[in-house]
Write a protein that binds this DNA or RNA. Structure first.
Lengths: 225, 225
DNA sequence: TATAAACTTCAATATTCCTTTAGAATTAAA
DNA sequence: TTTAATTCTAAAGGAATATTGAAGTTTATA
């Protein structure tokens, strides 16, 4: 679950990041309009939290751009003023929720959770794919009704595969989804290989089919057809 | 579902009422201690939302009175920003949840929903989960019909786990629920570790399964599936 | 006030996870 | 078939996180 935090107050930005990461989200940050704009055009996010008053531009512009590029990210607008105007403008533009400063991080978290739930899997909390069952709230995965224990990366990988099943996904896409912009361009994909190996192993041990087909030179295809 | 709203800011009170009624609750209001006290002694409510700072008295007194008359109403305490003390006192007195001003009505709604759900354990005052039995009024816990003695924190922890069973709950969520919103972020989670350790120990000693699964890097999952 | 109980802090230890590495296996192209 | 690129695998190191027991502090209770 990848979140972009756009906020110019450094301290607040840091604590948002720390808090949300401890809640299990992966966060990236931008502290002015320009950087924010670059990021939303380079990456996909599940949720974008944007302060309206930004250096080098306006947060509402970000909302506009997200909508123009038909992003599916949930959008939460934050503003210091209690200005109804901004709120309305934001909602008109298509933001999903609105938060007024000062707010509690737990409140932000609740909003994000609500949005993410609404967006992902239509509020379903169980994903079933033949012999694979994923219980989202508990993060539990079972194969043939035998629970298996996945690490964070393995779980994210599996979820990413299932969401994109029967599509070829590049290693770049995987890297971007699991590591985001922390990834060094020059990095090899060695760690992907490792995580895929481990994921495959854990599934196969419980007698699942190996849905993960390697597409040589490109990436993978989680094939259930 | 009948709710009593106790709050002296007229505008806020009105919007609470309007909002919650649009959510399908029946609401009554009181804007000072005296009126509130009269109402709780005259009627039964499913939930009482009470601001601590009230004209003609203190909100905590209301909580006390509710408990004295053995009301079964859920209680949500609302307080201005920096009164951690009040919150804790409220929880001690037996309130179910608390909110810090300023808050969003949707948040209040969520809390009410949660409490109502929690309360309506079929109106029973006993929670049974396999070998674990909890008698809510007396706070008594037994495992395999052997009573065990839990401290306040351990009891709160166990209850929080059970209410959120089969969901991953973050350490932040635990901290917030047991210690309040304004947990310092720089705080470590050492005390959580300790209380979990002690809770686990006491349960295991009586031969219970260790339902508390650690979710590495995130938190815990009280797993009964 | 004295005492016990509960809570928090601390530090040592244990565990888990992620990444790296190097070599083996596989694949596509020459 | 040979070669080079790519992918797979297993093992190991290191970083992050979790567990534990004990010590210190606070709080409640007699």
């Amino acid at each position: 679950m990848k979140i972009l935090l756009i906020e110019d107050e450094k301290e607040l930005l840091d604590s948002m990041k720390t808090y949300l990461e401890s809640e299990g989200y992966r966060c990236e940050t931008a502290n002015d309009y320009q950087k924010a704009s670059e990021k939303i055009h380079s990456y996909d996010y599940d949720c974008v939290v944007v302060d309206i008053t930004l250096p080098k531009g306006n947060g509402l512009q970000i909302v506009k751009e997200l909508k123009e590029k038909r992003s599916e990210a949930g959008i939460i607008i934050v503003s210091a003023k209690n200005s109804l105007d901004d709120k309305l403008k934001g909602l008109e533009l298509g933001s999903d929720d609105y938060l007024t400063k000062p707010y509690h991080l737990s409140e932000l978290n609740a909003r994000i959770k609500a949005i993410v739930r609404r967006k992902s899997f239509d509020g379903k909390n169980e994903l079933i794919l033949n012999e694979i069952k994923i219980h989202l709230p508990s993060r539990g995965v079972s194969v043939n009704d035998c629970p298996i224990t996945l690490t964070t990366k393995e779980y994210q990988l599996l979820l990413f595969f299932i969401v994109n099943k029967n599509k070829v996904i590049t290693k770049n896409a995987i890297a971007e989804h699991l590591w985001g912009d922390d990834m060094d361009q020059s990095d090899s994909f060695d760690f992907i290989y490792t995580h895929i190996k481990n994921l495959r192993k854990k599934m196969l041990e419980q007698g699942a089919t190996d849905y993960i087909k390697t597409v040589y030179g490109i990436g993978y295809n989680f094939n259930t057809l």
